[in-house]
Each structure stands twice: as structure tokens, then as C-alpha cells.
Design a protein around this nucleic acid. Structure first.
Lengths: 206, 206
DNA sequence: ATAATATCCGGACCGTAGTCCGTTTAGTAT
DNA sequence: ATACTAAACGGACTACGGTCCGGATATTAT
């Protein structure tokens, strides 16, 4: 029924064409390593592409050739965590993975996502900052499809696609971080509110 | 019970301190006029602060002194429409204004906001692009409080504040515009999905 | 009219993301 | 080994948002 191309996360090569040249691979590692160092030292927002290039000892052009944009770099840095989260909600044990009732999977998905955002918050936000098409990034498309699928499975028949958009909006990193950091909302409170939301949405027919 | 300072929209003066000097007022008008021209010619995204300054015949510093930032300029350009929308949902006729049952007011609020976003979309998006605190802008705070208030009035007792955050996220200009422009979703479909959402959220206790 | 002062003005300047293109180099075929 | 080519490299360059501060100007008090 759903046949997704598994974990379509960018790994640093602009397009998946043939093998990467050895110097390119070496520079990619240098850059990722330097990026992690810089983030440790200056925070995500303190990482600039110039500093990164200098730290890695490569030209600026090389940085953009490898990652396309700052957002692309951030996505690459997130890819391991992202892949792990994806495999958990697609293939892992219930209630997040298959096997549990759809509503429980939805609730667990929100909780998982909230935890993910709280852990990798700034990175996720920076990765989202792709001026356009931030909703078309493979990971975002996959989450959306997952939510839509669970809505359907739970018997929600009224425009599950659009409702999945709304529910995704609730889990947007920028808003979650804002609630937590500026308003001191606890993770538990976020999870409970999400549970209320999806329970009521899925629950009764009109 | 709710005592909001009515329509706290910025009008172009950095802070509401005493009178504006006459040359400042003149330049503000020149700038707003030039901004509208440029938007007509190049679209919202084509308006740059340099072009604006040149077109208005003032220095760049003046632009930032008047509006603080690009986002601030966009907010000023929106302020008339914003004030009109605010007064409609706060004081206008039902179902948007007071008098109708809370759920109907919520539904009408979403519809109104969707219409607003579709009309002033790019402007609203550009106004939101304030790198941080985009949720603390007076207008956003007012919408949020309004939704929260309607939730409470409709008997929603489980964390109305946070639920209002989620519902606001659904009405985010960036997402709405994306749905409409990239995926061809019709306004009517947006309104119907919003209706479903708030009806179910407000509807039954758990 | 004159002086005093708070406000405003202009545009050079800065940091940053992203582009461009002439040069270098890794891989490959001979 | 040598020549060839596609890929990668580097860093100067552009565009843009935003800041700064010495100089100009409107306003008010005298």
C-alpha cells in the first residue's frame, strides 16, 4: 500500500550520481568534522559558511558544492538522527512502530518528534531555514505521509492530507522551541497537548 | 475579563514617543509610497531596502530608522488591513464578532484569516520573517489570545493556551500559501479542513 | 532673530549566504 | 608513463539586510 523509498536523506553528495572522487570525500569529512567543532564552540547560529571553510582548510566554493546551502549542511548533520527516528516510526516496536492502533501511533509519533526537536532543536530549525520548499524536503514529506496514513488508518475520512498538514504545523521546530524556551512549556505538557489534539481529531465523526 | 490594548499595530514610528518631526513624517510617506510602487513592479520578494531607499530618494539609514527592519516595513504596509481584520473579529457582527457561539466564531475566524492570507499572502509572509520573536509581534499575540479565549468559552479546559498555539500554526501564512500555490488546494478546502479541526477539538470532552 | 538641543539624515561600512569561472587534480584509457 | 577529461577546487565577487556616526535640520525657549 505504501511503498516509500526508504530514508531518502541527503548524505552530502549533491546528487546520488556515481562515486564521489576521493578528494571530494576527504573534504566532506573535513567539513562535517569542522562543522561539529564550530557548533560546539559557537552554537548552531554561530556557524557561518566562511568560518567553516576556513576551519576545514578548504575554499568557500567547496562548502557550497558539497552541501548546496547552509540548510543543506544542517540536514546532513542531522541525517543520522533523522534516519534513526525514521526507522523507529516505520519499522520499530509499537506504539511508535507498526502494530499498535493508529491513534496510539499518532500519539507516540508526536512524543517522539517532540523529543527529537528538543534534542536537536537549533539544528532542525537551521535545516528548515531553506528559504522556500522547506515543506518539500524528503524528511518532511515522509513525516507528512506518515501522519496522513495514520489518520486514514484511524478512520479519519475528511481530507486527511490537509489535516496532516495542520498536525505537522503543530510539530514545527520553531514553534515548539519557542514554547519551550520563551514560555517555559515542559515537554510533558507539549506531549499532553498533542495527545489531546490528535485524540479529538481522530475520535468522533462529525 | 480580557482587557487588550486595542489594535497595537506599529504605524511606522519606531516607538510611540511624542510627535514625529515633519521631515520624518514626510519621508515615511515617501517610503511607503515607493514601497507600494516597487511591490507592484517587482513583487514583495523583489523589494530590497536599497532599491526602496533609492526610489524614495532618501538614505538607507532612514529606511531602517523608520521601520526597524524589512519585516517591520512589511508590517506597516499591512497595518491597515490588519487593523480592519482585528476590529472585525473583536467588534464586528457575528459570527466573526461577538454574539455567535464560540465554535462558530472560531470557524469564522479561520475563514477570515484564510481569506486574509490569500489576499495579502506574500506581504504577511515577509512580515513574519522577523528572524526571531515572530510569535511575539503584537498582532500574533492578539490572534493567539483570541483563539485561546474562544477555546475557553467553548468549554475547552485542557491547556487552551497551548492548543491555541497549535491552531495558530495551522493558519500560518507560509503553510497556507504553500498548500494553495504548490498543491493547488482551494480556499474552500482550507476552510472546511479548519472547520473539521476546530469542531473536533472543541467538541467532545475526552 | 538667535541660540540650544533633540531628532533625523545619508551613505560608507560590515557580516553573511550564495555564485562564478579560471585553474588544478583524480581517475581512466592508451 | 602519458595524455585526456570530467570533476572538484578556491577565492574573488555580488546582493542583501542591517549598523554607525558625523553632519544637517526642525523645533522650542529666550
Amino acid at each position: 500500500m505504501f511503498c516509500v523509498s526508504l530514508i531518502p536523506i541527503r548524505s552530502g553528495t549533491p546528487f546520488g550520481s556515481g562515486q564521489e572522487r576521493s578528494d571530494a570525500a576527504r573534504n566532506r569529512e573535513l567539513l562535517l568534522c569542522a562543522a561539529r567543532e564550530l557548533i560546539d564552540e559557537c552554537g548552531v547560529d554561530g556557524l557561518t559558511m566562511d568560518k567553516l571553510a576556513e576551519r576545514a582548510g578548504v575554499g568557500k566554493g567547496t562548502v557550497f558544492r558539497r552541501f548546496g546551502s547552509r540548510a543543506g549542511l544542517m540536514m546532513t548533520l542531522l541525517s543520522a538522527a533523522e534516519a534513526e527516528f525514521q526507522s523507529r516510526f516505520m519499522f520499530g516496536p509499537p506504539p511508535l512502530g507498526p502494530g499498535a492502533p493508529p491513534l496510539e501511533r499518532l500519539i507516540a509519533f508526536g512524543a517522539g518528534r517532540i523529543g527529537y526537536v528538543l534534542e536537536y532543536g537549533d539544528l532542525a530549525r537551521a535545516a528548515d531555514h531553506s528559504p522556500y520548499n522547506r515543506f518539500e524536503v524528503p524528511a518532511a514529506v515522509l513525516w507528512h505521509r506518515h501522519i496522513e496514513h495514520l489518520l486514514r488508518a484511524a478512520g479519519f475520512d475528511a481530507d486527511p492530507w490537509l489535516m496532516a498538514v495542520s498536525l505537522s504545523a503543530t510539530l514545527d521546530p520553531e514553534r515548539l522551541l519557542h514554547a519551550v524556551r520563551v514560555h517555559g512549556v515542559s515537554p510533558g505538557r507539549l506531549e499532553e497537548s498533542w495527545r489531546q489534539l490528535v485524540t479529538r481529531v481522530v475520535g468522533p465523526a462529525e
